[in-house]
């Protein structure tokens, strides 16, 4: 049976924890709003970009001269997995669910006899993958100093990936990130970025785009535009994924911290009841002693 003082100490320590988790929840809520805004702002660009790419890809994609970024290298032997996670923990299952998806994907590829290379973005994913897939790491992007994700960050990652592709280090690149649905639901996703897969991305609009595509003039010409735009497409997709991930991380942290705050509250209630009981027990005990002492006289 813990003493009264022990209980009191525990209650105050749980109260402190509750203050911290409450504060973290509110910070996450504010950051979530900002992350959602950023994702919203970036949407028009990505939508227009994908629509144009889809129509370009439809008209050039079939030919033999299609760029490698669109048509692929003709192989899928070496696979690059770009695993995007958070720089910080305490956000529920956010990091582990992305890592879990990446891990099962990597294992599947390996059992099919393919070579797996992993590029990690964000510290937490790297730590979790290190034990099983440490040998497959080819690089790491650290975003811990970045307060607000900008397009330049995505361009940096895209540049790294494209240089590797030009050097023939891999055939297929896949992004792993978490899509933001709502505060309580984020879904880990895979998205193939190289070779680019624009047709499936804009499935609903495809018929409309194709009829429009025939009408456009191109300056310089279709191939030159495509060659110019494809590397940008990689950066755009990475940027969109980074923003989704940012919003998901804050959403996951917010609900995790909300749970933690509630748990701390319940714990405080329980401990307070226990504290009151044992205090009453002590008082009763003392009374009994006094009364039995008085009777003995």
């Amino acid at each position: 049976m813990p003493s009264l003082k022990d209980l009191k100490n525990r209650i105050s320590s749980v109260k402190n924890t509750r203050k911290i988790t409450k504060a973290m929840q509110m910070v996450a809520a504010a950051k979530l709003r900002r992350a959602q805004d950023a994702a919203e702002q970036a949407r028009p660009y990505a939508e227009r970009f994908n629509a144009v790419m889809a129509s370009l890809a439809a008209s050039v994609g079939g030919s033999d001269t299609a760029p490698k970024l669109l048509a692929g290298t003709g192989q899928d032997k070496v696979q690059l997995l770009i695993v995007m996670t958070a720089e910080r923990g305490l956000c529920g299952g956010f990091n582990s669910s992305i890592v879990k998806l990446a891990r099962s994907h990597a294992a599947k590829l390996k059992s099919e006899g393919k070579e797996v290379k992993i590029l990690t973005v964000g510290k937490k994913g790297r730590e979790q993958l290190k034990r099983d897939w440490g040998d497959a790491f080819v690089g790491h992007v650290d975003l811990s100093d970045v307060k607000r994700i900008g397009y330049a960050d995505a361009q940096g990652i895209a540049k790294d990936v494209l240089t590797r592709f030009d050097n023939g280090e891999f055939d297929v690149a896949t992004l792993f990130y978490s899509k933001f649905h709502s505060v309580i639901s984020q879904e880990p996703l895979t998205q193939q970025v190289i070779p680019a897969d624009y047709e499936s991305a804009t499935d609903d609009e495809a018929p409309k785009d194709q009829s429009e595509a025939a009408l456009y003039d191109y300056e310089p010409d279709e191939e030159a535009i495509l060659a110019d735009l494809l590397p940008r497409g990689v950066a755009t997709q990475i940027f969109a994924a980074l923003l989704e991930n940012g919003a998901s991380e804050q959403g996951a942290r917010m609900s995790a911290m909300d749970n933690a705050t509630r748990n701390a509250g319940e714990m405080i209630d329980k401990l307070t009841i226990e504290y009151n009981r044992s205090r009453q027990a002590v008082i009763t005990n003392e009374l009994i002693e006094i009364i039995s002492g008085a009777e003995a006289l």
Binding site: V52, L56, E212, L215, Y216, D217, Y218, E219, P220, A224, I225, D228, L229
Partner: peptide, 11 residues
């Protein structure tokens, strides 16, 4: 570019 320009995509 003014209104009713022919459809064009340029870099």
């Amino acid at each position: 570019i003014m209104a009713n320009h022919a459809p064009l995509i340029t870099t």
